[in-house]
Design a protein around this nucleic acid. Structure first.
Lengths: 110, 110
DNA sequence: AATATTAATCGCAATATTGCAATATTAAAA
DNA sequence: TTTTAATATTGCAATATTGCGATTAATATT
């Protein structure tokens, strides 16, 4: 035990969980916000921006990338990271959908 | 090590991380979806709905409650759980905001 | 009062995450 | 080609999460 029983849930539930989990750490939220705030397609400035060591940041970047929230392009020795719009869109759409359901059945609950 | 360095991040980053983390498990996504789909304010039916044992579900409910995504009201021997609109709204607003930023600086990135 | 019913808590094992120092990899620059 | 740079990977310690059986707590019901 200790491992998530993903096989019991729907694809969408698992997908949302993966995306949400990727944002389930303040450092990763900070990375996404930083990428949004920067005009140019910055690279390892992220390490300087965050109060974490380089390997730790690298690890967080990897997780965000695996989840589909950011993309990375090699550019010489540097790597250009930027937001993966698709992942963000999926989350936005999901919460939009959920909020709609909420509005519909408002006040039928405790 | 092993513990998240929350003190280095902003309150909002931490708050979003807590909310996202709560949805970072398919069972908890499933619970939220179930609560949205049910008209009446059900209680322990969640246990029957999910492929998990009662203590495990109870644990997930606790986490969702701590994060502010659901509420629980005691109703006799049963407990009535339902969506906490505030938590959902916060996520929706956050992603709405992020998506807006994305649209603004579209194509300035890789 | 005795008994069911509902849900939380405890305690544990298995596994995952966080964070970093040290090291490896890769490609530009000298 | 050696050096420098930017990142990734490895390996490890500390901690957190997941899941469940057993138990407990609290309230209805009989």
């Amino acid at each position: 035990m200790g491992a998530t029983k993903t096989e019991h849930f729907t694809d969408i539930q698992n997908e949302i969980a993966i995306l949400a989990k990727a944002l389930g750490h303040p450092a990763r939220v900070a990375i996404v916000e930083y990428l949004l705030s920067v005009n140019t397609c910055i690279c390892g400035d992220i390490v300087n921006e965050l109060p974490l060591a380089q390997p730790t940041v690298s690890q967080h970047l990897k997780e965000l990338k695996n989840a589909g929230l950011i993309k990375g392009t090699i550019e010489g020795t540097a790597i250009c990271y930027c937001i993966d719009e698709e992942g963000i869109q999926k989350l936005q759409n999901y919460f939009g959908h959920i909020t709609t359901q909420l509005v519909i059945k408002k006040s039928t609950c405790c």
